[in-house]
Amino acid sequence: MRRIAAITRNPAVIALVAMLAVAGCANKNTPNNPGDLGLGAGGIGGAGSATPGSAQDFTVNVGDRIFFDTDSTLIRADAQTTLSRQAQWLAQYNQYSITVEGHADERGTREYNLALSARRAASARDFLIARGVPANRIRTISYGKERPVAVCDNISCWSQNRRAVTVLNGASM
């Protein structure tokens, strides 16, 4: 697992992996469509009603977050699809800089999880760079297990918290 993670941090290899990945073929237990999770701009409007180029458009139609397997920093196939969409969108709307937030679930100790979620943020950042997003538009921050989105005591919940979230800087929702 670690070896794969190390390989995917190499941008050249990431690009190759991304090309080989079959879009939409993700069979992990975590849904990666933000609509399924209700994580988008809930209540503001459904997908498609968001103004193109807005933060809502990014969150709802592109997907602002990817998910990871337990104790892994590997960018899964479903996450590669999402990040590729993010990179395309950011190329089109190049006024935005972004912050990639790395997060961990609570099933780890605090300091290790800070490091793990930092590596997740770096993995997502490196993938975006490999897909053409300029490095100087990206910063990362690690939250460890400090900011769960889902609060409960089961596996489906923890899987939503193991995530990297791309936040548009200076965007008004």
Partner: peptide, 26 residues
């Protein structure tokens, strides 16, 4: 970058901690 997991040395002269590298390792 991020610094974390600090602790004093027994003589109080140093703080030992983790520093996040640009490649995501610490």
């Amino acid at each position: 970058g991020m610094t974390f997991a600090p602790r004093f040395s027994p003589d109080g002269q140093k703080v030992i901690m983790s520093l996040l590298r640009d490649d995501g390792n610490s």
